[in-house]
Design a binder for these strands. Sequence first.
DNA 1: AAAAGTCGTTGACCAAAGTCAATAAATGAT
DNA 2: ATCATTTATTGACTTTGGTCAACGACTTTT
Lengths: 187, 187
Amino acid sequence: METLRIYFNTFLKLNDSEWKDFESCLTKVNITNKEQILRQGEHCNFIAFIHEGSFRFYYDKEGEEKITAFNFKGDFVSNYRSFLTGKPSDHFIEAMQDAIIYKINLQELNSLYDKHKNIERLGRLIAENLYLMVASRLDSFMFQTPEERYKALLERNSRLLKEVPQYMIASYLGIKPETLSRIRARK
Amino acid sequence: METLRIYFNTFLKLNDSEWKDFESCLTKVNITNKEQILRQGEHCNFIAFIHEGSFRFYYDKEGEEKITAFNFKGDFVSNYRSFLTGKPSDHFIEAMQDAIIYKINLQELNSLYDKHKNIERLGRLIAENLYLMVASRLDSFMFQTPEERYKALLERNSRLLKEVPQYMIASYLGIKPETLSRIRARK
DNA sequence: AAAAGTCGTTGACCAAAGTCAATAAATGAT
DNA sequence: ATCATTTATTGACTTTGGTCAACGACTTTT
């Protein structure tokens, strides 16, 4: 999992022994398109690194899918809240393509935290980074109109808009497909 | 700062030597009502524990105050984003009463992280906890109407509603004071 | 190739929150 | 206690996004 190690390097460089221990906790899993790797009601006891493929993280509100996140190659995918709290997930995680992921589970991660101060630190840096990501999404909901949110997304990740159907983008932006269609028409 | 140590215990117990080192990094500061402990444009290089008093954390959007958080006795107060990224703060932090806080700065906290694995862990646990808090606020903006948000707040923190003027509550809920007034009138 | 489904667009209408203005109530200052 | 200021409420109207329905462009299935 060289790509994961490279990703970690953006936070902190693990030495060979730390990395070796980390790597030995990873389980490779092949996932087929539309397979759910986490269901509502289950405890999410893993964090997975996406080697290939993509996922959507969504919540079922009275039969309507509310998409909270998309995850792509090179991202982590997990219900971090359920993972941290031990509570059942209110979200589903579903593959949008065939995928290959590397999972690590809670117990193993906790042993790694115990064993290596550097991995403990990596855990902190990643938690801090996840904080920054939700915080910025929260800002977009508090301070921006749907139109601004859409334009910012376009700016930041125009690839997403090409790869994911528009009704999912609308859901992710917190609006109805009709509204997104009208925003795009406004030019 | 016994109250802070007790608060830490809800995450992790520090032994006497760890705590002694931690405590020696704290600086007590007296704050007067309406004093700003952080201004827009400044880098937030501290995290402070509130021993007495309360603060509001707000953003100035075209002359309009957008309140993002309230912090009370027993909470931390900081612009955690600016603290973590080193970027200038886009928020102000202002005292709502005379206050006493205990500050720790970034450099000192980093040395504590280096020196004590347990404090490193405490840092992770607190980062994880802050993640959970923003994530749940994000949920309230994505999935709830302003009325539901108000009722949930009432449920969760009715004291807040008594201590803070209503127009600030409205701002915190992401709505106009008139709208909050109407929501309350709906009964 | 035809039929069935899915997705995006458009129109007419509705509901909820925002805006602006007037007024009432509460708070603070002298 | 009175006056001035700030805060909260209410009304009329506007704006924005949601709802429901129709339709057209593509896909997928058979």
